[in-house]
Simulated scan of single mutants.
Amino acid sequence: MLLFFAILAFVLDQLFSSRAAYIHVGAAIGTVMVANVFFVIIPGQRELVAALRDDRQPDPEPGRNALLRSRHNNYLTLPVLFTMISSHFPSTYGNDYGWAVLIALGLVGVGVRHYFNVRHIAPRSIWMLPVAFAALVAVMLYTAPRHADHEPVARVPDSHVAIILRERCISCHAPRPTQPAFSAPPAGLSFESLDTVIAHARRIYVSAVATNTMPLGNLTGMTEEERVLLGLWLETKIEETQ
C-alpha cells in the first residue's frame, strides 16, 4: 500500500502542481481509510455480533481482515494528517522534488506510528523514534528556504516593487479582492501598503521567491525576473529590520 501511495504521489506531481498533488494524495488516503471502515471493519464487527446473537462460532476471516485494515488505517493516520495541513508549509510542496518530500514525510509518520504500536511488546524498538526524528530534521534542512545568489545590482526601488505587487498580488491580497476565488485577502494580508509587505517580508519571501508557490498557481503570471527583483527588495527589507 505504501508503494501505491508513493507512485500516486509521483504521478500526481507530474500531472498537477505539487500543492494540488499533496491534496489529492491526502484525499486518496482518506478515501482508502473510509473504505476500510465501511466495507471491511464494520461488516467484520457485524459478523461477530451476529454470531454471538445466533449462539454460533463466528467466522474468523472477517475479523482477520478487519484487523488488517485497522492496522492500515492506524499507519496512515499521521501521513493523512500532514496532507491536511500541508498547504501551510510551502517549503515542502514548493520543493523541486515535492513528491519525494511527501513520500519521506509519510514514511516518517509511518515509522512513528509503528513505534507506538509495538513499544509494549518490543521495548527495544525505541530506536525508531530517533531515526524518524533524524529523517524529519533531514527533510527540514533539505526543504529550508535558501537565499538565492545574485549578481550585485542597484537597490530595487520601492516603486518597482509596488508595480509588481499591483500586477501580480493585489488581485487577491486586497481588502476587497478582485480574484473570484477570494472574498477576503488570504491570511488577512493586504499588500496595498508597502509597510504591510515589509512587516511580513520573511513570509512573502518564502512563498513568492524561495518556493515559488505564490501567486497561487501563478495565475497572474509573475515572471522569474519579477521574482528576482522582489526577492532582492525583500532581502534588503529583512536586513534593515533585523
Rank of each mutant, 00 (worst) to 15 (best):
R124D: 14
R124V: 12
R124N: 13
R124T: 13
S125V: 10
S125I: 03
W127D: 11
W127T: 13
W127F: 14
M128T: 01
M128F: 09
M128K: 12
L129P: 06
P130F: 06
P130V: 00
A132W: 11
A132L: 07
F133V: 15
F133P: 09
A134M: 10
A134P: 01
V137C: 00
V137T: 08
A138P: 02
L141F: 10
T143F: 07
P145F: 00
R146Y: 05
R146K: 07
H147K: 14
A148E: 13
A148N: 00
D149S: 11
H150G: 05
H150S: 04
H150R: 12
H150F: 15
H150L: 08
H150Y: 15
H150W: 12
P152Y: 02
A154G: 15
A154S: 13
R155W: 10
V156A: 12
V156G: 12
V156Q: 10
P157C: 08
P157A: 01
D158R: 07
S159V: 13
A162R: 14
A162G: 05
A162S: 15
I164R: 00
I164P: 03
L165S: 09
R166M: 06
E167T: 02
I170E: 13
S171V: 13
C172V: 10
C172N: 04
H173Q: 04
R176M: 13
R176A: 13
T178H: 14
T178C: 11
Q179K: 13
Q179E: 14
P180N: 07
A181N: 07
A181W: 07
P185A: 15
P185I: 03
P186T: 03
A187D: 10
G188Y: 05
L189Q: 15
L189I: 15
F191K: 05
E192K: 09
L194Q: 09
T196A: 13
I198E: 05
H200G: 00
A201M: 05
A201N: 05
A201L: 02
R202L: 07
R203K: 07
A208W: 03
A208F: 03
V209H: 06
V209W: 00
A210G: 06
T213D: 08
T213E: 15
G217N: 06
N218V: 08
L219N: 01
G221M: 11
T223F: 13
T223Y: 09
T223M: 11
E224P: 06
E225D: 11
E226C: 01
R227M: 08
R227Q: 02
L229K: 02
L230P: 10
L232N: 01
L234W: 02
L234T: 05
L234C: 04
L234F: 00
T236C: 06
K237T: 08
K237L: 02
K237C: 00
E239C: 10
